[in-house]
């Protein structure tokens, strides 16, 4: 079984996000970038499938600027066998990403595509579902447990009311949630080894995809600031404030 793992380079989850003064977006200059945390979980799952003998190849793919290679190197250091970089500068929307991934799937013919349920930059939560729709494959979203064998995969999904179990025919697209696994840190020897692994380069044109955005971002602004920070000295004072000042209890 072959697993394809799309990964996205995003602002590191610990970085304090600042909106640009001209309100055109978020300031990404000189900001630490990392692999989208949900995609790390996806890479980990693919590598574990390999280690368990359920998968024989894990291929990472990323769409983005030159620096996305660093993200792919991370995936390779975690245990992916090889990588594909679709080089693109500038914004990419989930639909265009899904179309390019569908092109890569066409060339690679994986049995499973495993990716994060959302990226922590645009918080769109669309790419996996769109890819699955374009391919006409089955989809398992927000999965916290995966059991793949014999042409089928059973997943446990985290839904608003609790958990759901769904059986999917393969090939399938899975989008992963936080509790599927805990991603490993790449060891130094594996980081060194990853430098020698292959990263193939492609362009959106190679995949025949028009990446023109469908959404115009008119402006990006700071959210309203909360005026917090008042401290109370006791539980009695807290209850008094909530009852008499705020009137919420």
């Amino acid at each position: 079984m072959k697993v394809l793992v799309p990964v996205k380079r995003v602002i590191d989850y610990n970085v304090k996000v600042r909106v640009k003064a001209d309100r055109t977006g978020v300031d990404l200059a000189n900001v630490k970038m990392s692999m989208n945390p949900f995609d790390e979980i996806a890479v980990e799952e693919a590598v574990r499938m390999k280690e368990a003998g359920a998968a024989d190849e894990a291929v990472a793919v990323s769409l983005g600027p030159q620096q996305s290679q660093e993200t792919l190197r991370t995936a390779l250091a975690m245990g992916a066998d090889r990588a594909i970089h679709v080089v693109h500068d500038g914004e990419l929307e989930p639909l265009a990403v899904a179309k390019m991934l569908a092109g890569v799937v066409g060339e690679e013919a994986p049995d499973l595509v495993i990716l994060g349920k959302q990226a922590i930059d645009d918080d769109a939560n669309q790419t996996g579902q769109m890819l699955s729709g374009l391919l006409g494959w089955s989809q398992g979203t927000f999965v916290s447990k995966v059991d793949a064998s014999d042409g089928a995969v059973r997943v446990v999904r985290e839904v608003d009311g609790g958990l759901e179990t769904v059986a999917l025919r393969m090939p399938a697209v899975l989008t992963v949630d936080l509790r599927l696994n805990e991603p490993r840190y790449a060891s130094l020897p594996n980081i060194m080894k990853a430098r020698k692994k292959e990263i193939a380069r492609k362009t959106p044109a190679d995949l025949g995809v028009d990446t023109t955005p469908r959404l115009n971002t008119l402006r990006v602004e700071e959210p309203p600031k909360r005026q917090g920070g008042l401290k109370v000295g006791s539980v009695a004072e807290l209850v008094d404030k909530l009852h008499n000042d705020a009137g919420v209890i």
Binding site: P94, L95, D123, G133, T141, R157, L215
Partner: peptide, 23 residues
């Protein structure tokens, strides 16, 4: 934008070649 809507709508959007606006 519940887990139900998030699961279904992007798939429908892709079938229609539409870029969804989320949440």
């Amino acid at each position: 934008a519940t887990t139900t809507g998030k699961n279904v709508m992007p798939r429908a959007a892709a079938l229609l070649d539409i870029q969804q606006v989320s949440d």
